[in-house]
Design a protein around this nucleic acid. Structure first.
Lengths: 200, 200
DNA sequence: TTTTATTGATTGATCAGTCAATAAATCATC
DNA sequence: GATGATTTATTGACTGATCAATCAATAAAA
C-alpha cells in the first residue's frame, strides 16, 4: 500500500477529521483515536505525522483561521467604500462556510484551550488583531480614530457573542439575522458620526 | 475531628475551591484532587458530598448563576426608569464581583461543557432567558416589542462577547470601558426609537 | 451504639505516545 | 531489467500516567 507522497493528503484528512470530531463532541476533548479513525487511519499514523496531539490541534486551528482569512481578503477585494468594507467583514463571519455548527464549536473550544496553551493563545491573538485591523480599515475613514477603535471593539465583541450564543443553539437561529444585528449596530452608530455613505 | 453539621461548610468550601481551580486552570479540566486539596480535604470527601464530579461542577455553575441572579435583582430594585433598568443589568454584568478573571473563565468553560452536558445546558438556558427577560423589562417601554427582542439579543451577545475577549486578556482592559461600550450601543439605538429618557 | 466525618489505599478505565515489525514503492548499480 | 538498499507508509501491541470512583477502616460526636 505505501505509495509515497500521501503525506499532504493524510495531513489534510486528519485536520478535517479533527474539525469533525471537535464539532461532534463540542469540545477539544477528543481522542487521537477518534480523530484518526474518522480519517480512516490508525492513531499511530496521526502521531507519526503530527507528533503530539497538541500539534494536530494547533494545525487545526491554523486551518480554521486560514480559511477565515482567505474568505476575508476575497470579500474585502470586492468592497469599494469603507462602509462596504464593514459589511464585507461582517458577512464573511456569518457566511455559510464560517458560521457552521462544527466551526463555531471549534472556535469556542479553542478559546477555552487558549487559556492553557500559549501557542493557541498566540493564534487567537493573530485572529483578533486581524479582525481589528480589517474593521479599522472600514471605520477610520468614517469617524475619529479613537471612536473607531472603540467601535471595532464593540463589533468584534458582538460577533464573538453571537458565535457563543449560536453554539448553545440559544441565539438567533439563522446567520442572516445575526449579521443583520451587527449591521444594525453599525448603522445606529454611523448615523451620527458623519453623513451616511451614498450606497443603499 | 468529626463534628456533625460541617456538611454545608464543606460543600461551600468545595464549590469555592472549584471556582478557584477552574479559574487557575482556565478550564473545567480540573481534578477532584485539585479541588479537594484547595478546600483542604481529601478527594474522597468531595466524592462523599457530591457523588460524581459532574454534580460538583453543576453545583458550581448553579452558584455562579445564583450570585449573578442575586446581584441582578438587587440592582434592578434600585432602578426607577426603564432606561435605568438597562443600565442596572449592564452594570451588574461588569461589576467587580462578576467581571473577575476566575468567574469569566468559569463562564467560558461552562459554555463549552454545556455542549456535552444536558444539565449544564439547561442551566445556561435559564441564565440566557433570565438575562433576556431582564433586558426586555427595560426595553419594552421604549420601543416596539419586535425591536426590543432584537435589541435584547444584541445586548446579550455583546456582553457575552466582551466576556470572551476579556478571558483572552485581549479585549478592553477594564470593566468600566466594557460597560460603557454596551451603554453606548444602547444609547445609539435608543436615540431614534423614541425621545431619549429624561435622565443623563 | 448509631450517626457523621474523614481518609489512604486501591481499582479500573482511558489515553497519549512509543516501537518494532511489515510492506510497498523508488532508487542505485550492475 | 534483475537485485538489493533505502525511503515512506502503516499498524498492532504495549507502556506509563492520570484520574474518577469506591471502600474499608478510623474516630469523634450524639
Amino acid at each position: 500500500m505505501p505509495k509515497p507522497g500521501v503525506e499532504p493528503v493524510r495531513r489534510k484528512a486528519l485536520i478535517d477529521a479533527a474539525i469533525a470530531a471537535i464539532g461532534a463532541r463540542g469540545s477539544l476533548d477528543v481522542t487521537m483515536s477518534d480523530i484518526a479513525s474518522r480519517a480512516g487511519v490508525s492513531s499511530a499514523l496521526a502521531h507519526h505525522y503530527f507528533g503530539a496531539k497538541e500539534e494536530l490541534l494547533q494545525a487545526t486551528m491554523r486551518r480554521i483561521l486560514a480559511d477565515l482569512g482567505g474568505d476575508s481578503v476575497k470579500a474585502l477585494r470586492k468592497a469599494a467604500t469603507p462602509r462596504e468594507r464593514l459589511s464585507a467583514i461582517v458577512n464573511v463571519n456569518f457566511s455559510a462556510s464560517q458560521f457552521r455548527q462544527e466551526i463555531i464549536q471549534a472556535w469556542l473550544a479553542f478559546y477555552v484551550e487558549a487559556q492553557k496553551s500559549q501557542p493557541l493563545r498566540r493564534l487567537l491573538r493573530v485572529y483578533a488583531r486581524r479582525l481589528h485591523a480589517n474593521l479599522m480599515s472600514g471605520l477610520v475613514p468614517l469617524m475619529p480614530r479613537a471612536e473607531a477603535e472603540r467601535m471595532a471593539e464593540g463589533i468584534a465583541a458582538m460577533i464573538d457573542g453571537l458565535y457563543i450564543r449560536r453554539a448553545l443553539r440559544d441565539g438567533l437561529p439563522n446567520p442572516a439575522s445575526a449579521a443583520a444585528l451587527v449591521e444594525d449596530y453599525v448603522d445606529a452608530k454611523l448615523r451620527r458620526a458623519r453623513p451616511a455613505p451614498a450606497n443603499d
